[in-house]
Design a protein around this nucleic acid. Structure first.
Length: 581
RNA sequence: CGGGCUGUGGCGCAGUUUGGUAGCGCGCUUGAAUGGGGUUCAAGAGGUCGCAGGUUCAAAUCCUGUCAGCCCGACCA
């Protein structure tokens, strides 16, 4: 490709809308162009990379038995009504009516469509297991797009679906998919961590995310450097007993009933504990939440030093989401903000984090302005309807597995894998006849990976202050060829080199523009092709062409005659860096 | 959906406080010089100042509304 003819151009300045490096670079390099919030065109260079990423995904999917097919972007409402998600999912699903008034939607994912295929074509256990995948555009009307391709509304996704006779077969297949995911990321030059994750709107049992760790990310993951435990914060477990101090030795545990104490204006955990001289670990924090589908709020009790993770709480309550009650709402239930208490005859459902069982007695609110209770014993002094883990893990909390301090990192979720089970096959009637002759629901797994998001991660991981540093496996072109000066000899030689490289199947971007050296070098750095070849009077006098790797700073001269062979060698060596084990 | 902010040639911005009929840099066009890290000079093209209403002799500037976008939060496989 001659740069003088290529569609699109580079920008010198950082676009004002871009915050994260990949976003800024992708716009500056002319890789993407926004049409509307979260809706982008992929420009020619980006599209070449996208194709390579898709190829890598395809190869890895094929290698574990996947068959590629393609399912529609537009779905009829019927199948989503069958699965129950037509009503479960909110405004993030784009819906419309066709000309005859039938409800339709843009698919956000394809469990429904693939389950429809399964019930059409899978009749017998003899057809199982089976795996299909497709790489398709999806639309989710996200409330907030950000970071260029990191979070968008229209996006390309590779999703795979596996069908099994039973849970055991799914479990034995699942690791292959996880391994394929790790291989894909490795081959694209993006390091990922496999973390336990929430099942979210997919439903099902076990799920993992493959997360690229970066400060530009929006997911919070909890990692144990010691034993390797890794989980999304929404499901991360940690050891709550280890942080607990013994109940303070003031004999309060001997109180046969709680006692009221005056705590003027002490309406936060910190101020109360300071005032009373106790540790927050022996206090109770009470919060009021509204959960979807529940008329009355629930009282949530957690140890004072901990915070509630709303995802965990929502899952426990079987609600799509929960929200904190507003001050006015508290009043209408007779609750006093700042002095909330699980005690009393409020009649509300009480959810307790299991941390409240780690100590004997606690300080709690008195549900009365400026008063708290001491010597409160959970269970004795207030009822608990359900106890579960609803606490958010934090940095330095002890690992639930090995006790080492946990670390918290930000990351981008590149892909995820779910053991769906029979959630869709049962609701949509995808059954097969077993060896015994019985009718059984197909056990399913689903596995998604964002193509554009992975591309953004590639750039996020592989760049410097000058521009992108493409891994050879996904680079739009392998070689960036440029000439300097207008001498006929230089131009002729470069043209010949260009032709020779092309004839040898090498992908070359040829900067044939009449631009100054600075412009050409800067664009080469910004565009970031792995190998740069410079031909100028100076290089010819030194014996040929100058060759430089984008990721290295040193250059060397290579004779024109040996150039093609030399480049082939380099490309092979570079490719070797991205081979998955 | 809350909080903060921004809309002015293709891109990045100034001008808005104190109303007087639009400017800078980059990019683009033409010509010349230069030719190893965004080089230099000259001449050009390009904007109903997001949109709608209002105040005024006069609005990019003041007022009201509205739309779009960005950031933080909520939300989200």
């Amino acid at each position: 490709m001659r740069l003088s003819k290529s569609f699109g151009k580079t920008l010198r300045e950082k676009p004002s809308e871009a915050e994260v490096p990949s976003h800024s670079l992708m716009i500056r390099a002319g890789l993407i162009c926004k049409l509307a919030a979260g809706i982008y065109s992929y420009m020619p260079f980006a599209w070449r990379s996208i194709k390579k990423i898709k190829d890598i995904m395809g190869e890895e999917m094929n290698a574990i038995g996947g068959q590629e097919l393609c399912m529609p972007v537009v779905n009829p409402a019927d199948i989503w009504i069958e699965s129950g998600r037509w009503y479960e999912i909110g405004p993030e699903m784009a819906r419309f009516k066709d000309r005859s008034g039938r409800d339709m939607c843009l698919a956000m994912t394809h469990e429904e469509a693939v389950t429809d295929l399964a019930r059409h074509f899978i009749d017998s256990y003899k057809q199982l297991p089976s795996v299909v995948y497709h790489i398709q555009t999806k639309f989710r009307d996200e409330p907030r797009c950000r970071g260029g391709l990191i979070r968008v509304r229209e996006f390309i996704m590779k999703d795979a679906y596996s069908f099994h006779v039973d849970e055991g077969d799914l479990r034995s297949y699942y690791p292959y998919m996880c391994q394929a995911y790790e291989r894909i990321c490795k081959r694209c030059g993006v390091p990922v961590v496999k973390v336990l994750s929430d099942v979210g709107m997919m439903g099902g049992d076990i799920a993992h995310e493959f997360t690229y760790v970066t400060d530009s990310g929006e997911d919070t993951i909890i990692l144990c450097d010691q034993c390797g435990y890794a989980a999304n914060r929404d499901v991360a477990k940690f050891d709550k007993t280890a942080t607990t101090q013994e109940p303070d030795g003031e004999g309060k545990e001997s109180l046969s009933s709680p006692e009221e104490v005056h705590t003027p204006s002490k309406n936060t955990i910190e101020s109360v504990c300071d005032y009373l001289g106790v540790s927050p670990t022996t206090s109770l924090k009470t919060m009021v939440y509204f959960a979807q589908d529940r008329e009355d709020p629930v009282l949530v009790v957690i140890r004072g030093d901990l915070d509630v993770n709303e995802r965990k709480l929502a899952n426990l309550l079987n609600a799509a989401e929960v929200r904190r009650a507003l001050p006015d709402e508290l009043k209408s239930y007779g609750l006093i903000q700042g002095f909330l208490s699980p005690m009393g005859d409020h009649g509300l459902y009480v959810v307790a984090d299991d941390s409240v069982l780690t100590s004997r007695t606690y300080v709690a609110g008195a549900n009365k302005p400026d008063y708290h209770m001491i010597g409160v014993v959970p269970g004795r002094d207030f009822k608990i309807d359900v106890t579960a883990d609803i606490a958010a893990a934090r940095a330095n909390d002890p690992c639930a597995v090995c006790g080492a301090p946990l670390t918290v990192k930000k990351g981008i979720e590149v892909g995820n894998t779910f053991m769906l089970g029979t959630r869709y096959s049962e609701t949509m009637g995808a059954y097969f006849q077993s060896e015994k002759g019985t009718l059984e629901p197909i056990v399913m797994g689903c596995y998604g990976m964002g193509v554009g998001r992975l591309l953004a991660c590639v750039v996020e991981e592989n760049h410097d202050e000058h521009g992108i540093i493409w891994p050879i496996t996904v680079a739009p072109y392998q070689v960036h060829l440029l000439n300097l000066g207008t001498s006929e000899k230089v131009i002729d030689t470069t043209d010949k080199v260009y032709t020779a490289l092309l004839q040898n199947g090498i992908e070359v971007l040829y900067d044939d523009r009449d631009e100054s050296a600075g412009v050409k070098f800067n664009d080469a750095d910004l565009l970031g092709m792995p190998v740069r070849i410079t031909i100028s009077n100076r290089s010819l006098e030194s014996g040929g062409a100058e060759v430089k790797l984008r990721r290295e700073s040193d250059t060397h001269i290579c004779g024109i005659d040996e150039l093609v062979e030399k480049i082939k060698e380099i490309l092979e060596r570079e490719a070797h860096r991205y081979v998955a084990d």
